[in-house]
Amino acid sequence: MANRLDHDYDYLFKIVLIGDSGVGKSNILSRFTRNEFSLDSKSTIGVEFATKTLQVEGKTVKAQIWDTAGQERYRAITSAYYRGAVGAFLVYDITKKQTFENVQRWLRELRDHADSNIVVMLAGNKSDLNHLRVVSTEEAKVMAEKEGLSFLETSALESVNIDKAFHTILKEIFHIVSKKALAAQEAASMSGRRIQGTTINVADSSTNTNKSCCST
């Protein structure tokens, strides 16, 4: 974005909120960014947008979150927003089997339109409606493991696990990004910086350098 010059954060991560219509995406977003929940909110037409800045491992991270209309027909517009996203928050409703079954279709959608390294968080929302539950925690865990996703059950209504879910995905993204940054740094230091006698970052990266030497 063009406000590079005056930014007040160390990292900016773009995250997309996806999943069937009615699972609670818009309320998860409003709960996370404004601590608001509404039992009668409007259905999302097109895309919505909100941000929140928080601390992840001592760094200031700004999450830029795109909320999308869930209905299949809208993917014609919404899939453009997957581009550049480093994280996806994939939501289903624990009281609606179909929304869980469609998780596979959403994953396919991500494979087709998003970066292959995108970090995905699976969220089983409406955990407050336990008496109406039709998707067990166990089967969702199994699927998340199989697909390599993080997983939590959430309630936007009761504000359960919403912050935790976002923290989890942001931390995971942060690790990947900082590993990449580190790798770039190493590449730079390997390729002749030392010869020039520069010792920038040597103090804190030397141990890491050794580790990665052995592991690759």
């Binding site: 974005m1 063009a2 037409i45 097109g46 895309v47 947008f49 517009i77 453009a80």
Partner: peptide, 16 residues
């Protein structure tokens, strides 16, 4: 410059 395009704000204008 700010990478704003109409799908971000005007989709609803037309759709509804």
């Amino acid at each position: 410059e700010e990478m704003i395009n109409p799908s971000m704000y005007a989709s609803q204008w037309f759709i509804t």
